[in-house]
Structures are given as C-alpha cells and as structure tokens.
Amino acid sequence: MIPLDRKDYITLRSNVENREEKETKIIQKLEPFINGKVGMYVPIKGEVNCFDEFKRYKQLYLPIVEDEQTMNFYKFKGKLYRGKFNTYEPSNKIKIEPLDLDVILVPMVGFYKMYRMGYGKGYYDRYLKQTKAIKIGVAFDCQKMDSMTIKKSDVAMDLIITESKTIWKQD
C-alpha cells in the first residue's frame, strides 16, 4: 500500500462527509478550552471550521505570516482581509506575544501520535516553540496517519480533538 502524502490528506479533509455534524462535535469538545487569550485560525482548504462558532469571543487572536520565517498572532476585532498568502487575517495590528497566549487551536493536514503535518513551511512549529499555551490540534478522524517522519523541529500537541476522540499527550 502506497502511503498518503500531504496532498492526499488535504483532499481527504476537503471531502469529509457530514462535515457540519462532525464540526459541531469538535466544537462541543473545544468549548471548555476557550478561556483566556485564544489563538485560532480562519480555515482554508477544508480545515475544521471552529472560527465561525468562536469568532465573537472577546480575546481571540489570529495568525499573520509576516515573512519567510515569521508568523505572529494579532487581536481579532471583527474584520478580516485577504493577506498575502490568500488567507484571512485580522485587520488591526495589535500583536500578542507568544508567552501571553493561553490556548492555541492548531489546524492540521494530518496527524500521527501527538504530531501534526502542516503545509510544510514550519510557521506553526517555530511559533509553538516560543509559547507555553495549551496546544490543541484540531482535525477530523480521517486525518489520522499510520506513520509520519517526526523531525526535531516538530512540536507535539498537548491534545488533539477530532469528532470522535480527545487524545491527550500522556495517552
């Protein structure tokens, strides 16, 4: 059997059946963690959409990729615009320091054990190394991988939430 690659997992994620029902289950599991200053993402390419549910939360921060190496989170105040990578970004520039975030919801292309596959540029891993926030990977069950090469630069999630499971780091 040929292992799936990044593109295959993006396709699987984009074609999830009963998406609304599965996202509702994921959101219900996320709700107890939406406390303090929360880093979140606006979904692209079929990522789990928890943004629509939590966008009214007062202490919400969204990522902006600033250059080839740097991503930071900025306060969301209700307005978004299309950024340079065709992603939605907050319209203001009130930056939060990595150590000031309490929770970060992290999108995934796929996951293996407590590690995520992203888009391959390392933005989240570099940022996550700078924070003590609870790192919550958000994915659908179909994104679970049978194996993955874990690099030294990869950062483990504290928990991963899918529609059917909450996987804790110590599990």
Rank of each mutant, 00 (worst) to 15 (best):
N18C: 03
L128R: 11
D141V: 09
Y115N: 00
V42W: 10
R6Q: 14
K135G: 06
E163S: 09
V103S: 06
Y127I: 03
D102Y: 10
K132F: 02
K129F: 12
L80D: 08
D67V: 02
E31S: 13
L60F: 02
K144A: 08
L80N: 06
Q130V: 03
L60W: 05
M148F: 06
Y123N: 01
A139M: 11
K113T: 01
I96V: 14
L62C: 02
S91F: 09
D141C: 11
K25W: 04
C50K: 01
E97H: 13
V38G: 08
I96L: 07
M114W: 00
K135T: 09
I167R: 07
K135A: 14
P107K: 09
D125Y: 07
W168M: 01
Y9N: 15
Q130Y: 08
E53Q: 14
F51H: 07
S164F: 00
G110R: 10
L60K: 11
I136R: 01
Q59L: 05
K37Q: 08
L62R: 06
E20T: 05
E53T: 13
I27W: 05
Q143Y: 15
L60N: 10
M148N: 03
D67H: 00
K45Y: 05
V106M: 15
N72A: 14
E17Y: 00
S147V: 01
Y74V: 00
G46T: 08
F85W: 13
M157H: 09
L80F: 07
F51S: 07
V103L: 08
S14Q: 14
V65T: 14
I96D: 01
K129L: 13
K79A: 15
G83L: 04
